[in-house]
Simulated scan of single mutants.
Amino acid sequence: MQRISVIGGSRYFGKLLVERLLAGGHQVTVINRGSAPPPAGAEHLVVDRDDEAALIAALGSRTFDVVVDQVCYTPVQAAIAARAFSGRTRRYVMTSTIEVYDPATADLRTVPPGTPVPEEVVDASTWRVAMDRPWHDAAYREAHYAEGKRQAEAVFARHRGFGFAAVRSAHVLGGGAAEFTGRLAHHVEHITQGTQITVHAETLPTVFIHHEELADLLLWAATLTDVTGPINACSDGPLDVHDLGAVISAQAGRKAVYRRAAAGEHASPFSLDRHYAMSNARAKELGFSFSHTTDWLPGAVAEALVDTADSHHR
């Protein structure tokens, strides 16, 4: 049994993680602003993580074996957490993102085109941190999501108060309506309705992970290994938007209809004109086994089809 704190953990794979930790007999403390209660058996601290004094007060004398941070988006949030949890935990696991490899904002020149990107390409310990940007502004955070995650990783990577691991998640799918980004639902909706999906002239592949598999990997990272540094989290088998559409079409019995995006026009989610599929070799070498995307994607599409149909009947 370990003492685990989960920051966030109120929805989607974060909620699944809390449930898995409890099922494994761990002592779990969930820290969030109280938007939803945690599963029965978890301690709940209702506090705004951005309020450092309130966070420290809420923690009191508590100590943890591991902290899993599901909702760290900026270096300012990371710095607050690093100070608040120093001396309270031996390990800190942050949920990061594939977006740290976005070629629009990261230098991937050392990676041959089309090659899955390994973790060392983006070394957070060397990344510049800019605390003076308007990270408090929600619109700014959204527009600079990848940079915020990179800089948050950088703060933790340089901190010496605990061991740090960053789980860089691929695009997360599955769970039907629980998949709150709506990206899979977007494609399902267009294909079932026979409307056009806007795509780039050349569509490049990316990688995905099922929400349950990501919860399992976070559980592994928190309780079954002392790994530090970045860990790419993605199922085997990159797909492009046409591959995704083919799976949806097979499930829906409707042909996908595509339209080429005009210059400067936004394309549909998962139509990518840049390659940043990740390599999951490091996690495999450390002992984690991934599924293949095609093992679970038809089931995820089936869930999305049910939710789409239900929404049209409300």
Rank of each mutant, 00 (worst) to 15 (best):
R33W: 01
E153F: 01
V68H: 04
T105N: 12
S35F: 12
R91K: 06
Y92H: 12
A79F: 14
A154R: 03
G148L: 07
M131F: 14
F64K: 05
T115D: 04
G24D: 11
S125H: 10
G60F: 04
Y73M: 07
R62V: 11
S61N: 14
D137G: 10
D65F: 01
M131S: 09
A42I: 00
R49Q: 02
V111T: 08
V100G: 00
R62A: 08
I31Q: 02
Q151H: 04
I98E: 13
R91E: 00
A58Y: 00
R150Y: 03
R90H: 10
Y145M: 12
S86H: 12
D102S: 11
R128W: 08
A106Q: 04
D69H: 09
R33L: 01
D65Y: 03
A42F: 04
V155I: 10
V68S: 09
A138V: 15
V100Y: 01
F64C: 04
A138R: 15
P112G: 11
G24M: 07
G25N: 03
T74E: 01
A36I: 11
T115M: 11
V100H: 00
V30C: 07
Q70L: 06
P112L: 10
P112Q: 05
I80C: 10
R150I: 08
A36S: 11
T74Y: 04
R150L: 07
E119S: 00
P37F: 10
V111L: 13
A36Q: 13
D137C: 06
C72G: 06
K149W: 12
E147C: 09
G24E: 07
A84G: 05
A58L: 05
V71D: 14
F85N: 07
D107K: 12
A57T: 15
G60W: 01
V46D: 07
A143R: 11
E120H: 14
V122W: 02
T63I: 12
S96Q: 00
V71N: 08
V28L: 02
P38G: 14
K149R: 13
P134F: 08
R91N: 00
A53E: 15
V30D: 04
R150W: 00
Y140N: 06
Q70E: 13
A152C: 06
P112E: 05
Q27C: 13
V122H: 04
G60K: 03
H44D: 12
Y140D: 00
R90F: 02
A124L: 08
A138I: 14
R109T: 15
V121L: 10
A146Y: 07
Y145E: 02
A58M: 05
A54C: 06
A104T: 13
W127V: 14
T95K: 06
T74L: 05
V100D: 02
I31V: 12
D107R: 10
C72R: 01
F64D: 06
R62D: 12
S86I: 09
G114H: 09
P39E: 13
R109S: 15
